Amino acid sequence: MGLKSDRVVVVTGASRGAGKGIALALGATGAKVYVTGRTRTEGESPLPGTVYATADEITRRGGTGIPVVVDHSDDEQVRALFEQVADENGGRLDILVNNVLTVPDALTAKGPFWEKPLSLVDLFDVGMRSTYVATYHAGPLLAANGEGLVVNTSSFGGSCYMHGPAYGAGKAAVDKMAHDMAVDFRPFGVAVVSIWMGLLKTERTMAAFAANPGAYEGLAATAETPEFTGRVVDALARDPELAKRSGQVLVGAEIAAELGVTDVDGNTPPSHRPFLGDPPTFSDAVVD
């Protein structure tokens, strides 16, 4: 995709957190960025941020931010989102970032999964299933474009035990989707990757840091800003070797080091591979 400054991008789940940071970083390249989320006004969520505030900040940074209120558990709303993108851009879409994820309050509670609320399976819907549905509707636009990039945001929880089996299954699923979607997209010049992010300085995480600073002192020093992954996505989209990476699970910090990407503060966050484990390696076999 070269050095395009007029990319058309969709980032799901961008009212706050990783999605907001990714959207801001891509918007700063001059892209038109569609940001989705459910939060219309401050106060609707216990955490700050709205789709409109994210879109406004994108525009202030030199891009074009377009807010679209979407509940990603509603397939019809997702279909309408990509119909809007197609209608407003002559059928064009360059980058899709599948980031939206339900984060139940009990996700990080201690104890075995059967002692936690069954509602943790909600992240199979908005997280795992929503990744499939969004890419399903984006697929024809990307394929017609003849090039493009799909990114599934993920984490080391796809490999190691992290927050229990519901979270782990959801992340492992989007990792495998990236591999399998890449097979179908390959003839159309579209790459698909899953990016393992590190600990992020999101609104939720920063609140936890403030509530218990001693417990997070070491982790806070190496945490990534939410915009870091967006910078990595931008670099990947410009990487002449992108096609060779398609279908892989990539550690964001490692790709950043390889492509010369730094965080907003100029630091290079470390990879957590040494103590959280390796990304999966999938078979090259294709059974139609």
Score class of each variant (00 low, 15 high):
6 D>R: 09
52 Y>E: 06
264 V>K: 15
13 G>L: 05
131 T>D: 13
216 Y>G: 13
132 Y>F: 03
55 A>C: 11
204 R>Q: 11
215 A>G: 12
281 T>H: 02
126 V>C: 06
57 E>D: 09
3 L>W: 10
190 V>H: 10
111 G>L: 10
168 G>D: 00
80 A>Q: 10
196 W>C: 01
74 D>L: 14
270 P>F: 05
148 G>F: 01
44 E>K: 08
120 L>E: 00
179 H>W: 14
125 D>A: 08
201 K>F: 14
10 V>L: 06
120 L>V: 01
93 L>S: 00
39 T>G: 10
183 V>S: 10
12 T>E: 02
103 V>Y: 13
35 V>F: 07
77 Q>F: 01
14 A>N: 13
32 K>P: 03
156 F>D: 05
193 V>D: 09
241 E>L: 08
120 L>A: 00
141 L>R: 00
286 V>W: 14
251 V>K: 06
145 N>M: 11
281 T>F: 03
63 G>W: 02
125 D>I: 07
62 G>V: 08
100 V>F: 14
275 F>N: 04
270 P>Y: 03
246 S>P: 10
180 D>P: 15
273 R>E: 02
243 A>M: 12
229 T>E: 01
263 D>A: 14
249 V>H: 00
3 L>C: 04
275 F>Y: 11
90 G>N: 09
278 D>H: 12
56 D>A: 10
50 T>G: 00
138 A>T: 01
17 G>F: 15
171 K>A: 12
114 W>R: 03
278 D>S: 13
241 E>T: 06
71 D>V: 15
82 F>C: 15
13 G>M: 08
84 Q>E: 01
16 R>V: 12
196 W>F: 05
181 M>T: 03
91 G>D: 06
199 L>T: 06
16 R>S: 12
257 A>T: 07
233 V>E: 14
167 Y>N: 00
214 G>Y: 11
88 E>G: 11
167 Y>M: 00
160 C>G: 07
240 P>H: 13
26 L>N: 07
156 F>N: 09
229 T>Y: 03
277 G>F: 08
73 S>I: 04
229 T>Q: 02
282 F>C: 01
42 E>K: 08
279 P>M: 03
202 T>E: 08
82 F>R: 13
251 V>Q: 04
73 S>C: 09
201 K>S: 10
146 G>V: 04
185 F>R: 05
32 K>M: 05
173 A>Q: 05
